[in-house]
Design a protein around this nucleic acid. Sequence first.
DNA 1: TTGTAATCGAGACGGTACGTCTCGTCTTTTC
DNA 2: GAAAAGACGAGACGTACCGTCTCGATTACAA
Lengths: 198, 198, 198, 198
Amino acid sequence: MTPPNTGRRSEASRRAVLTAALDLLQEVEYAKISIEGLASRAGVGKQTIYRWWPSKGAVIFDAFLMLSEGAEGGPVQLPDTGDLAADLTEVLRATVTELNEPRYEQPMRALATEIAHDPELAAIYAERLDGPLREAKRQRLRRAQRAGQLAEDLDLDVAVDLIWGPLFQRWLHRSGPLTTEYADRLVATALDGLRPRR
Amino acid sequence: MTPPNTGRRSEASRRAVLTAALDLLQEVEYAKISIEGLASRAGVGKQTIYRWWPSKGAVIFDAFLMLSEGAEGGPVQLPDTGDLAADLTEVLRATVTELNEPRYEQPMRALATEIAHDPELAAIYAERLDGPLREAKRQRLRRAQRAGQLAEDLDLDVAVDLIWGPLFQRWLHRSGPLTTEYADRLVATALDGLRPRR
Amino acid sequence: MTPPNTGRRSEASRRAVLTAALDLLQEVEYAKISIEGLASRAGVGKQTIYRWWPSKGAVIFDAFLMLSEGAEGGPVQLPDTGDLAADLTEVLRATVTELNEPRYEQPMRALATEIAHDPELAAIYAERLDGPLREAKRQRLRRAQRAGQLAEDLDLDVAVDLIWGPLFQRWLHRSGPLTTEYADRLVATALDGLRPRR
Amino acid sequence: MTPPNTGRRSEASRRAVLTAALDLLQEVEYAKISIEGLASRAGVGKQTIYRWWPSKGAVIFDAFLMLSEGAEGGPVQLPDTGDLAADLTEVLRATVTELNEPRYEQPMRALATEIAHDPELAAIYAERLDGPLREAKRQRLRRAQRAGQLAEDLDLDVAVDLIWGPLFQRWLHRSGPLTTEYADRLVATALDGLRPRR
DNA sequence: TTGTAATCGAGACGGTACGTCTCGTCTTTTC
DNA sequence: GAAAAGACGAGACGTACCGTCTCGATTACAA
């Protein structure tokens, strides 16, 4: 993200910009955020933003990165009580709650949009933000698979998509209410499949 | 979308604007389309656009509407050969092909973004564009359910999400390559579920 | 100065800009006047200025033009009591007083500078502002010449330069104090010449 | 001009800046010269300029000073053949030629402007650049006066203004073509005065 | 001979203003 | 009375410089 950086970048300014970005995202729609406003909110010259970030999206993205890297203590881990269905249901319910939180909604939609339109950003997102999380999901499933709780020939990537894809899709497109019941049903249906089990 | 229309609206101008919108979407990124440019491309006064549409998104949306309503002859219908897995695979493969077509990509991402940020538009989308399609999907599954090919207590809405959600999610977030193999595996996994079948 | 003007220019905005220009010139140095500040002072969009004037200098110039054309009732005329020396002395003394007035100084230096650097502006200045005044000077001298008070073969243009040139030069370059005594001596010396008169 | 200079200033940098200033004046309009560009052209840090000169005008001025002090070998002297009219005509013709030279025009207009707007610079100009020249002019006239060729009570300062003032005025304001004929007529008219000589 | 202190090139910083672009509104003219 | 044309006030865009600042790296005195 950040250019070569010959060694003299002001860390204070960097943090001020990223913090201001997160603050603004809480207040106004992503599209209405201007570099001008961002700079003035951060108490920073516009040039300082243009010097270090190629686009508004990149700033917002870096802000998310800072947030996530600050929050996370070590590698992410999904709960593992041995009961896969229960664990997944818990995680999805938490996700539902989070997605319904107003203060996260705007920033996350902004991020989703930015990723949808900028392949380069999408790649960084996949590596830095989604990557570790996805790996954690895959590992939880792998443990279940080894315990014989999942099909032996299961493609774990497809499995992850099958569980979380519908959730994000419904949230992003508002194709229906995002409730904990939906999360429950989603987990159950994904685990058992659409076909009847004798 | 279109206001009451008391009777004096110029159909020629309306079509010119919508056609120009579709043309521009092929050429440039959605975000770079301006009302100004749209009006001049359509050979129309700016006021004519502001008079009849509340936002840029609404224009683009109306353009999609015109496109889809023009294309469609009667109600949409999913293939039904009796072999559900084969039929779903065929449809998903077709969707994969379409999503990978460059000339559809920009407009569809634009639409997705617009829906993600504008709940009102999302509602109209759900009703006018996605609605009929979703109904067709549900009906195909219902027939399979009645034929005993799907679980009796299956929530068809969740089922639709389970099949198409991962696909759109992967496309929009570019979280992985969108291939026909992926479509195949998705259908199979959704039908059988993650758990092992004895 | 003003472009073709297809017929829809706002007279109110035009006057607001020119008035603001004159106001600002009283307050701050010409070089510190910005288009941005001018527009905001005039309560006008920047584009309105850029649309109708090619440069800051052109605006200031137009402002002077408005001023002079507003002030002047009919053609300018120099006093003619029959006593050329007395008349010229009176006029030059008045000029000295005016040039020493703080509220005229800044604008006039600004105008002089602008003319010095922009030949196009200089031409308009020569025609619209300086022209009528210079003609009045020439005419006063011509009457004196006809009355036998000036040399028959005198080049009136050179004569005008000889009387007013030193004054403006001394003012602009601050090469010495600009007093009424200087004006008196200048007139006398110009009329009699440097050579001794027997 | 130059600050106290405690003894450690780099002569190389000083010359580089002044030379760059003169070079740039040949290429672009004075107003378009920036400290930033000047520093980079001179291969010098901006701070080195800000450390040693108070303003852009001061740099340009110092550059002129360097130029003039380099050129001049000893005190300036006007020609003295005994024929005052001929001598003055020769000098004024030379001045006309010089003022018409494109490579001198920009820098000299820049200098004139700077002097017009900055009284402090005007004082230094009067002392360092114009002073010696003006003294030379006065001395030539004084010799003529002693020889009885000029009026006994003539104010030599006014006389100098009368001869050179119109010329610079006409050049700076472009109020008419600057030709050798004009120079000739100017000298003749100044010497004889406007009034008829019996 | 070695500090040590000021100067140097470089360039980031918070800012102001540039000249351009588009917004959404308003006004004029044409059909 | 809707339409095309386009001027208007507003304000963001990305760039250029402003004048200040900090950073090693020379560099030339004083110890």
